[in-house]
């Protein structure tokens, strides 16, 4: 028997049922108005580099540019249009459909409270210029983007993994990376701490959150039916119920015995 081939370029969860007559609605993309702040912003960007597409979506201006122009466009927006804060930047993985990433730079103008999203599309191995000289916040954002998505950035002062460990393999936020990790990820801590030879002792990860083994006395104890570690589980069934109370009968003599009669329940909080 042969296993059916499943494509590996997008291993994320997918809807198991889609009505084939279903046409997904779209968030409206409104044209940029003739005048106003956004029109001036767009004109400033158009003056310095090529704008592929520009529209307003849910009240924010979205500009598509070529990836080579990212530094120039952001510089104009920062210095001429006072978009002084890079509040967010990251990438979206479109490797399966289009063979690249869509980068977005989310900018904020503190004076007019306007937000702009500058977007560009980079191929898989194409590098973009770092905008770290313009915005210090790009320092960590670009490192995170490299770490999790694998988008290359040129001229970054300290390009190193930020989130994952230095010796990690793969870029976890790519669509081709499974949620539960590849083999390297699943054995990472065991390999690192105890060495590969301890894999047999420790065993594979339990990824089933609902699994409980009541006969496993090595790792679990049932409250009220406790047996020594590793004892056969039948003993737990046979043994008398051990009281689950704080005060033992034959307890330590120096501690005052607690009796429920003498305890006091407060009517209201002090």
């Amino acid at each position: 028997m042969m296993r059916p081939y499943t494509p590996k370029d997008n291993v994320q969860a997918k809807a198991y049922y889609t009505d084939r007559f279903w046409v997904a609605p779209r968030v409206p993309e409104e044209p940029v108005p003739e005048e106003g702040v956004y029109a001036e912003d767009l004109a400033a960007v158009k003056a310095c580099c090529k704008v592929l597409k520009a529209y307003i979506q849910r009240g924010q201006l979205v500009i598509y540019i070529n990836p080579e122009d990212n530094f120039e466009a952001l510089k104009v927006l920062k210095e001429e249009r006072w978009y002084e804060m890079l509040s967010e930047m990251s990438a979206v993985d479109f490797l399966a459909e289009r063979g690249g990433f869509e980068l977005f730079y989310q900018l904020l103008n503190l004076n007019t409270a306007k937000r702009i999203r500058v977007k560009c599309f980079v191929e898989e191995n194409q590098a973009v210029e770092s905008v770290n000289p313009l915005f210090r916040s790009a320092d960590w954002a670009e490192r995170e983007m490299w770490d999790l998505m694998g988008v290359k950035v040129n001229n970054h002062p300290y390009m190193k993994r930020l989130i994952m460990p230095d010796d990690w393999e793969g870029h976890p936020l790519r669509k081709s990376y499974p949620l539960e990790g590849d083999e390297f990820a699943q054995w990472y801590e065991v390999d690192k701490i105890f060495g590969k030879e301890a894999r047999d002792i420790i065993g594979p990860e339990n990824r089933d959150p609902a699994r409980i083994d009541r006969y496993d006395t090595e790792r679990f104890a049932r409250l009220g039916h406790e047996v020594p570690r590793g004892a056969p589980a039948e003993e737990a069934e046979k043994s008398e119920e051990t009281p689950v109370r704080y005060q033992e009968e034959e307890g330590v003599f120096l501690i005052e015995k607690f009796s429920p009669e003498r305890s006091k329940v407060l009517e209201r909080r002090k």
Binding site: P172, I193, N206, R207, P209
Partner: peptide
């Protein structure tokens, strides 16, 4: 105890894989 809701690549699925635990 088990990794809980974070059944992901970055989470150790229970500290008992690394150190012995007395009480969960």
């Amino acid at each position: 105890n088990t990794g809980g809701m974070f059944n992901t690549y970055a989470t150790v699925q229970g500290v008992d894989r690394v150190i012995p635990v007395d009480l969960y």
